[in-house]
Amino acid sequence: MDILNAIVAFTNFVFIPATAYGAQLALGALGATLVYGILRFSNFAQGDTMAFGTMATIYGTWGLQAMGVSFGPLPTALLALPFGILVTVGLLLATDFSVYRFYRKQKVAPTILVIVSLGVMFVMNGITRIMIGVEEQNFTDGERFVFTAREFKEWSGLNEGMALKTTQAVTIVTAVLVVAWLFWFLQKTRTGKSMRAFSDNEDLALLSGINPNHVVRVTWILVAILATIAGVLYGLDKSFKPFTYFQLLLPIFAAAVVGGLGNPLGAIAGGFVVAYSEVFVTYAWKKVIGYLVPADMAPDGLVQLMSTDYKLAVSFIILIIVLLFMPTGLFKGKSG
């Protein structure tokens, strides 16, 4: 029975949270990788785009709640998502029109665009904080659990409980749907094909009569959709705080780089690699090991490789290792 308990503890404390977190990172990294593949720069404003989209969605959620609308057991924020996406699309298109377009016309080097995006990041950062403040916001409502630890214990008769939060289930289901949709879009639709063509070979795409303005516009729209969904899922699962979203930039880029910048499949794989690594090194394994070894060998300490305070360091280390030894990532991206 102890092995079962160990598995349950592992699933409950490591597998489920890491999978949900990985899905959120994957969606964020997809946005970053699309910008890199098509507009050819690392968009530092990705984290703050997520924050802005989440903020817009939170206002939408509050509006709906004030009108007495709810989504039954699911978070109301899901209903407000289209509104948040629309506002974010507006912001990104306006940013492109007023900022990036100018530099694109000058055909500036990618490094300059990176610094430009850093500026955009600070502005978005400011907008979000002015509009909603710097404090933490909890906007999750509806049913808290799909099943609770106690229900699981009663059902299984094990010592160890396992819970599945609604937000975790929502995250995983939404991420699967969004990724499936994105891949269908890129592979099958004509719009998606012109984006792939543009990413493959920009010169040839231009000489094939593909309108770059369409491609750029569609890219920003997709980035807004992905970033808002990623941000809202993260916020539902944990909580919303502008600074946390800014910090997400690091794991997101680690994920995109691990998978290979510019490669959508890589971004998803990278998201999970980073999330699992982070949770694996910061989880205290005492309990799981305690179930697996004889009682007298059970560890006294927490068996935690690294304090959760340092979890960002994990992304940083992954980023450095990948850039040193495998600069194009797992799925052969465009970096390196």
């Binding site: 639709t189 004509r190 719009t191 094909k193 012109s194 063509a197 795409a205 094939s208 009569g209 593909i210 309108n211 369409h214 569609v218 729209i221």
Partner: peptide, 12 residues
């Protein structure tokens, strides 16, 4: 098939 320009399918 990428080539002819202004294809209707190019817009969202």
């Amino acid at each position: 098939m990428m080539v002819p320009e202004n294809q209707a399918g190019e817009t969202l």
